[in-house]
Design a protein around this nucleic acid. Sequence first.
DNA 1: CACAATAATCGATCAGTGATAACTTATCAC
DNA 2: GTGATAAGTTATCACTGATCGATTATTGTG
Lengths: 213, 213
Amino acid sequence: MTALKVRSPRKPKGQGAERREEILDAALKLFSAKGLHTVSTRQIAEAVGISQPALYAYFATKDDITAELCIRAFAILVERMEAARADFIPTTQCFEKALRVYVDFGLQNPDAYRVAFMVEKGLDGTYKERVGDRPMMAGIGAFQRFAEIVAEMRDAGLTHDDDVQRMTQTLWAGLHGLVSLLIARPDFPWVEREVLIACHISLLRRGVLKGVG
Amino acid sequence: MTALKVRSPRKPKGQGAERREEILDAALKLFSAKGLHTVSTRQIAEAVGISQPALYAYFATKDDITAELCIRAFAILVERMEAARADFIPTTQCFEKALRVYVDFGLQNPDAYRVAFMVEKGLDGTYKERVGDRPMMAGIGAFQRFAEIVAEMRDAGLTHDDDVQRMTQTLWAGLHGLVSLLIARPDFPWVEREVLIACHISLLRRGVLKGVG
DNA sequence: CACAATAATCGATCAGTGATAACTTATCAC
DNA sequence: GTGATAAGTTATCACTGATCGATTATTGTG
């Protein structure tokens, strides 16, 4: 491993934002390849082709980089949830499809998902103060879309429970459980993944909706 | 903060194991108070009253300390699950009670729970190689108890699905979702906790069991 | 074209991290 | 006493995220 540092040419004067994107791109790739905690700021900087302190011109903190990635990823989720909601009618099929959107997103964006819902917060509130709950709030946007869907199901008289908040939180927790375990423990002797997901979604649907089992 | 280092007297010759316990005790308290990632080996050592390198006479790695704490905590869970299974008869009440045991355990031992199921593994396999999957395996012991309970329910003809593995994994994921979210995101505007737990358990029960909604 | 302004970036450095090596000290059996 | 050895030490390493102050390169202006 020679690892001569190859420097990227300095950006023209107004183009700092471009470098910022490069940093986010490099970070995303590294995180996906090696996991969140094992990637250092120096590795990110080297991948971009700049010095390590240069990162701090664009991000106050390493956590801010992950937070931004996370927020962007969740914007995509909200988008997908809205798409699912656009052609939503209160049926079992539509309902399951919406759940499936969430699961697929989590498994396709494991790093963002980790940062948003699985990363340790630090009981002293450190994490919270630095990065805010911005990533989580972004995730909550998706949660709200879920609440709307659940509300529609309730209004159609299809749910067991009438309290939408309560039901949505429970449903969300149920989905999150599968997604986070598949992400955190890929080596567990899981039943075939597609089968498991289908089975899980059916279970949640039965738990929320009245009618045919 | 003066923080004069107060040294604990050297242990007699055969009593190294006692120091080991002291380390685990101190670590558990610190982890509970400040969270896992924010506690350093130096802090643990100071709490015990020994030098930082002295830790490494008892544990090869910082992760090994958390792993041991985790394994011990999960031994308790297995114990409780076995107790729940001892006076188990295939009824809705007993089933829900068993689920409740799991949730209560997770919320009472959040740090152990984190290490076992929520801590990042490192895609390069670092975490796995050092600490093994010993903590997770300890957790799996509890999972097996669940499987047995589910099997009893199936044999009584009460479940929707006949595949015990599949159902148990799904059920476990559902429980884990609530526990892990409550641990990781305590600040989320949750519905009142007891209500939420009860609601979630009902949902999972409806998802798994046939019969009355 | 020269020049000041400034965005972009760098090298040096800091305190803190987990971990290791080499050494000391207390305690024990004989 | 005298070795052997468990228990613990200090010094140090490579690495981490982060800060400081200086240094480029570029730009619009005179």
